[in-house]
């Protein structure tokens, strides 16, 4: 699978895929002016690469402490795409990481979880400090 690297800015997260360990990461805050445009390269990457899931499972780690409503839609879209692939070939795990004190991030993770039927979606609490 190809590499993917989108650098973080003040209002958009780091988006990174490391082909060595098959981990896709989204880390940071997400409230870009145009979420559709910001996430387009990631969806293009998914489109080109999800068909080539090899024997190593794909792990998706998200640590998004805040996201705006249009990013929320983009993330839902991401999970829908992953769920579709999971139903065909399995081998995908999503981890939603949040800081222990960030109740909002926890609730947001729970709301995504509620809307997914098959995709393994874990809520992972990170202890502070």
């Amino acid at each position: 699978m190809d590499e993917l690297y989108i650098e973080a800015t003040k209002s958009s997260p780091l988006v990174k895929f490391d082909p060595k360990n098959n981990v896709l990461e989204i880390v940071g805050e997400s409230y870009p002016e145009n979420a559709v445009k910001f996430y387009a390269p990631m969806f293009e990457w998914l489109n080109n690469n999800l068909g080539h899931l090899n024997s190593q499972p794909l792990t998706v780690n998200l640590n998004v402490s805040y996201f705006n409503s249009s990013s929320s839609k983009a993330l839902m879209n991401l999970f829908d795409v992953l769920e579709e692939t999971f139903q065909k070939v399995g081998k995908i795990t999503v981890n939603w990481l949040y800081l222990g004190e960030n109740e909002t991030a926890q609730e947001c993770g729970e709301e995504f979880q509620e809307d997914l039927e098959f995709l393994p979606f874990n809520l992972v609490k990170i202890e502070n400090g």
Binding site: S69, S70, K73, D115
Partner: peptide, 22 residues
């Protein structure tokens, strides 16, 4: 909110039409 999040955004909209609900 969850229903709208699953839909495609309205034509000509840069946002997701979710801002006011949020």
């Amino acid at each position: 909110y969850k229903e709208q999040r699953k839909l495609s955004p309205p034509e000509g909209s840069k946002g997701a039409g979710l801002g006011l609900i949020e």
